[in-house]
Write a protein that binds this DNA or RNA. Structure first.
Lengths: 195, 195
DNA sequence: GTCTATAGCATGATAGAC
DNA sequence: GTCTATCATGCTATAGAC
């Protein structure tokens, strides 16, 4: 079934709306009826595309949004030749996007990940796979300038600082933490390049 | 009404159970009936002590658990004379506590903070106040060895690394991120002391 | 594939007996 | 202060017409 024209199918509209709502208000607080209303899909269509119900939809959304955000961050990092400048501009871009969305669009899966970590093993494993993918991607990027195993430690610290900064920035409605995180990341990179 | 003996009142049992459940499964997924059952209190007692209902209870729990966790971290940091050793042992203690709770007890307010950041202004402000209090406390601690304004940047990075590490560690059921975060924090501290 | 209706069960909140 | 019953509403999930 080839896509004719740029029309967006019902399934994708459902996934997009679910991703947006899970990101902004979390998994438990988002109802399937709200997703149906937001996406313009009939309630029954959700169960047509995701027979396993909410958990099935959540699993798909986590993996799809996770891959998309990895590409977004990889693009933000890859544009520059100097790694320190690239790191700073990536955190700046994240800060700008967060403020422009009225502090709603931070990490697409962090809220859900914390909610399900101790309550839903299937969704927990989906978030684990996404974070591992992000760390792998960042490890390969840092590997251009830093030897093992420091590349992986830097990559893990990058994700941790970004996630922690998103948390503080959303709670305070202030982009400041993201800029501090960027500076700290530059300091860590310098220490590992000279050391 | 003086406390006679070490009996724990109904109000505190409700707060304790709510704090535990909010921490492990989040705010939206935790029902008042579950809190009543867990604490052994009658359902109506919750509304007796918290007339504003769930939001009222959540606000109290966030501030109380936030202050308790600040004291816990401050104690973990303050025990040692050497700041680098103190930072490492604090992250080690956090890793141990997390693993021993089967990756359930990480930050007491992070899940709730992300859930309410864009949906409940009163609770968002409660989490903002708690994080600001933590950063202030850590800033004063770093101020013993590092001049302004680096003390505040280090304090913010400490909280961000701790929160990001908790997220990755819970998702992967692995304490590794907390140890990497501790090492990165030591690197940041060294850079600011020599620089 | 789309859409509606509804079952079965939870929720937050309230009223009122004791 | 404690406890129970209940209301109105929401949820996930299912069944079945079209």
């Amino acid at each position: 079934m080839p896509e004719t024209g740029q029309q967006v199918g019902t399934r994708q509209r459902v996934e997009d709306s679910a991703a947006l709502l899970f990101r902004r208000q979390g998994y438990a607080a988002t109802g399937l009826k709200q997703i149906a209303a937001e996406s313009g899909a009939a309630f029954g269509s959700i169960y047509h595309f995701f027979p396993g119900g909410k958990a099935d939809l959540g699993d798909h959304v986590v993996r799809r949004a996770g891959a998309a955000y990895r590409d977004l961050v990889a693009t933000a990092l890859g544009g520059d030749a100097d790694p320190e400048t690239a790191v700073l501009s990536m955190f700046d871009a994240a800060a700008r996007a967060l403020a422009e969305s009225d502090y709603a669009d931070a990490c697409p899966i962090a809220t859900l990940a914390l909610e399900v970590a101790s309550t839903d093993e299937r969704l927990r494993m989906a978030t684990e796979a996404v974070f591992a993918d992000w760390v792998d991607t960042a490890t390969a990027w840092f590997g251009q300038w830093v030897p093992r195993p420091a590349d992986r430690d830097l990559a893990t610290s990058l994700i941790m600082l970004l996630e922690g900064a998103f948390l503080l920035a959303r709670a305070a409605r202030d982009p400041g933490p993201l800029h501090i995180a960027g500076q700290s990341m530059v300091t860590l990179l310098r220490a590992h390049r000279s050391g």
